[in-house]
Nucleic acid binder design. Structure first.
Lengths: 336, 336
DNA sequence: CTGAAAGCGCTAACAA
DNA sequence: TTGTTAGCGCTTTCAG
């Protein structure tokens, strides 16, 4: 990589002249500017990012800490973040916490040494279980803003982007009860430990308790266990289930596939609604009626909020929470 | 963030003393070291990464350019890269090319300004279609090593990590012909434009041509089109298909689900084998028999190769290609 | 119109 | 044992 110094030497001018010429300063003579620019072009000169960062004390880089990159929703949010960040001239450094508190702390520390100007993150499962937040607060106190999305820590004062998990699940459940006249609706989840899993469960439970005379019927699946088997025996035990709300996409799809094995026609005998993306909902036959989360929008919003905060160093304290509403997308796993 | 300067001032010593003390230099007196370390601890001093990078002319950062983060395989490779990089003290900056040549070029340029020490990438679709490689060569000539994985540009001299796409598909096809005695095996793909898609198709075709007396039977699905519909009409038109090899996971799963709609029993009447990850193969009932790609291993290997190359600045020219073999995982969508 | 110099935070050769 | 200085690549103020 060429440096200003080398250009200056070759042109027999000073470093500052070259710098100014390239930055279109008014001070420099027309022909000098031209000479400088031509040589710079020739050598494909690019100002060294590291030097710039040091000088200006900002890196134009965002640290993103994701619990699980194999989670389609989280990957999609990352996509949204990346696109928005790029649009504003920011790069992103990605760390994967792998749902571990220690790795999350470590990533935060590691990048808080001047590598990034701020963070976007979704809280790791272990962190939520143990309810630790000190590392977040410390980071913010050190002057690095954080924006949390989806799984957020409520007792940390920072900007947040969340989903209407509770309402969406409540409404979906009520839909099955009222519009489809379902009599025994179950809730299936493999994310019951997460804040969002709990919200979804509560939304379901509230709708059941308010509108029916039976108790909520809930199946919690450990992520590493055999979901197909679990769902099969659950269906058998609680026959006749005629509606399913799933908190995650895998459970919803497996529920549809399993129904067929039981001789149940979806949606005639049983309706299934689940949180899922479009690509996931296409994997079942009939297609899964879904609660769609607009992951890219969430990512873009988070990036916008962070960038805005990083630019307005002034007014602090007034943290915002943005709710990105889900959409209900009717496919063929429900009636009508 | 505290700086050495501030610590030095508070301790009434020089900056270099503080620096040396923190770096356990032999030169500094025991008690000075202690005093310094205590204050540093108190203020949670972390050496500024940017200043270090500038000084040492390396960033300990890897640029990763991925065509599509929503592709489960690519996300998994990214996971492998991140883990290996972190293990060696490297960060990763992620760019998503979105299968676009321009975005790929742009990302390469943008990060080649001192932001990263090298690149790991998988070639964008458009780049493969147009067969452009100049931007890769230029980057390498500028002193930034590249490691390509999965979709590679063969005419670029650089380290590569690839999969045995051809052999794996050839063997899987042969397996259906010989071991399962299938008489009409189709190939379904939504990635026919990609180098790896072509390799898989050729592996299938070779097995068919060598071992049967019919022509290869191939369905190419445009990614944005209705795969369910396409597969349905394909099945109808070419009845009786009794075997499917799918180049991507979605096609395989949809093929299984579609078979049921045709009254075909999987695997009794029709066998399906597809490239897929474990989590994807769990989404069909019966589970998809898969060609597993070990994405994380691919990522880890790529990271290792790059890190090694960045450290041995000396010997160049001798580029390596590593093949990470697939595994054949028998599930219930094939006989026996 | 051009150049010299300081400084961002750090390390390391050299001086004291 | 500690301090001074130069320099990584860049911008920017101030002198010329």
């Amino acid at each position: 990589m060429v440096t200003l110094k080398q250009l200056a030497k070759e042109l027999n001018v000073s470093i500052s002249t070259v710098s100014k010429a390239l930055n279109n300063s008014e001070e420099i003579g027309e022909d000098t500017v031209k000479r400088v620019k031509e040589l710079a072009e020739l050598y494909r000169y690019k100002p060294n990012k590291v030097a710039l960062s040091l000088k200006q004390n900002k890196t134009k880089t965002i640290g993103v800490i994701i619990p699980d990159i194999l989670n389609h929703f989280l990957a999609k949010v990352l996509f949204g973040i990346e696109r928005e960040a790029t649009k504003h001239g920011y790069n992103i450094i990605t760390c994967i916490s792998n749902e571990s508190l220690d790795k999350e702390k470590e990533s935060l520390q590691l990048l808080a040494n001047g590598s990034v100007d701020g963070f976007i993150l979704s809280v790791a499962e272990e962190t939520q279980t143990k309810n630790e937040v000190e590392h977040f607060k410390r980071t913010i106190n050190h002057g690095l803003p954080i924006v949390m999305f989806d799984r957020v820590a409520h007792d940390v004062m920072c900007d947040k982007v969340i989903v209407d998990d509770f309402d969406a699940t409540y409404n979906a459940t009520k839909y099955l009860i009222e519009k489809e006249n379902r009599k025994k609706i179950a809730f299936i989840s493999n994310i019951d430990q997460l804040s969002i899993g709990k919200l979804r469960e509560r939304g379901y439970a509230k709708a059941i308790l308010e509108n029916t005379n039976y108790e909520p019927l809930i199946l919690k699946i450990n992520k590493n266990k055999d979901a197909q088997q679990k769902i099969k025996s659950f269906f058998k035990k609680h026959k006749p289930i005629d509606g399913v709300i799933s908190a995650d996409s895998a459970s919803g799809i497996i529920a549809i596939n399993t129904s067929a094995k039981f001789g149940l026609n979806v949606p005639k005998d049983i309706s299934v609604i689940g949180f899922a993306s479009k690509s996931a909902s296409n994997l079942s036959l009939p297609r899964l009626t879904t609660i769609r989360q607009h992951a890219k929008v969430i990512g873009a919003n988070a990036a916008q909020m962070l960038i805005e905060r990083m630019q307005n160093t002034s007014r602090e304290g007034d943290v915002k929470t943005k709710i990105v509403k889900t959409s209900f997308v009717k496919n063929k796993s429900t009636l009508k």
